[in-house]
Computed example of a mutant assay.
Amino acid sequence: SMAVPWEEYFRLALQEKLPRKIPEQNVHQFPPVLRLLEKRQELKAADQSLRAQKEVFQTTMAALQQRWEQLEQKEQELKGSFLRFDKFLQDAEARRSRALRRAAEEGHCAGRQEAEARRLWAQLEELRRERALLQRRLEHLAPCARLLGQVLERLPEFQGVPELVARFDSLADTQAALRRTERERLAELEAARARLQRLQDTWQDEVLWHGQRRAQLRERLEEARERTLHWESKWIQIQNTAAEKTLLLGRTRMAALNLFQVVCQHQRQPPNLDLEDTEGQLEQVKQFIQDLSGMLASLRQAE
């Protein structure tokens, strides 16, 4: 609803009803009583006019209020219409999306069906070509069939072509097995020959190596014999030298023992040292000689 400025409205209406300005000459011409009556009449007329304008204004405001309410109702209706239209657009968009998805799925399905149809058509063409090939092979094998029929007439032990073919397949398998066995035996024979050749080559190499080794050992044996003879002569020489040294040592020890015994006899003392203690014996002889030399020196001085 609209706020109505009543005071402002009445003030403006009163100003319109009242005279704008009283001329100066009229003010001075009328007496105060007449002017008062005139003012009352003007106020009464203004009041009546204001009441009439107030009624008109109230009527106008009521009409405006009713119009405003109608406009608000229209606005609400328009809002509802907008909402319903928006909902309609959303539903239409959803239906359009579903229709597009359905169309895409149908197109994809149609593509798969078309691809499957092409595959089946290609398979049919392949089967037709295979059928034609089998037909040509059948025509090509027709003489063989007639030949097998003639063979069956000459071989009554076979009941039919399948039995004859089975017998032939068995013989063919046996022949193939024999050929495989023969190839395996030939391969084993070749392997044995190769091993024998390797053994012969190895044996010859070993014989040659052993011959060389034997020659080397003979050379080393001769060298060892020469060294043995050399060291045997050295050993004999060493033994001879050792015998001479031993003889000299024995003579020296006997001489030292004789001197020691002479000293003991001269001193009239029994030998108090071991017979093998040559150093001790020589020490006793040395001491005796020193004592004897000292005595002789004393005697010379006394003379």
Rank of each mutant, 00 (worst) to 15 (best):
R185M: 06
P32R: 13
E163V: 14
S97H: 09
G80E: 15
L18T: 06
Q65R: 13
T202F: 02
R67Y: 01
L299C: 05
Y9T: 12
Q53N: 11
T60C: 04
A192G: 01
M295H: 06
K74N: 06
Q76R: 14
S293L: 13
F260S: 02
L292W: 12
A115C: 03
D291T: 10
Q284F: 01
Q123T: 05
L178R: 15
P143K: 07
R300H: 12
S97Y: 04
A177T: 12
Q53H: 10
A255M: 09
E16C: 03
L34K: 12
Q284H: 06
E206T: 08
G107M: 08
G80Q: 15
P19I: 08
A92I: 03
F57I: 05
L34G: 02
A166P: 00
D201H: 11
W121I: 00
L12Q: 13
E303N: 04
V27M: 11
R167W: 10
K74S: 06
T174W: 13
I22T: 10
R35V: 11
R195T: 06
W235F: 05
A242V: 08
R251V: 12
T59W: 04
Q25G: 06
C144M: 12
K286S: 10
K245C: 01
K17W: 08
E75G: 07
R136H: 11
P19K: 05
L50W: 00
C144R: 04
L148H: 03
R11I: 07
L147S: 11
R137Y: 07
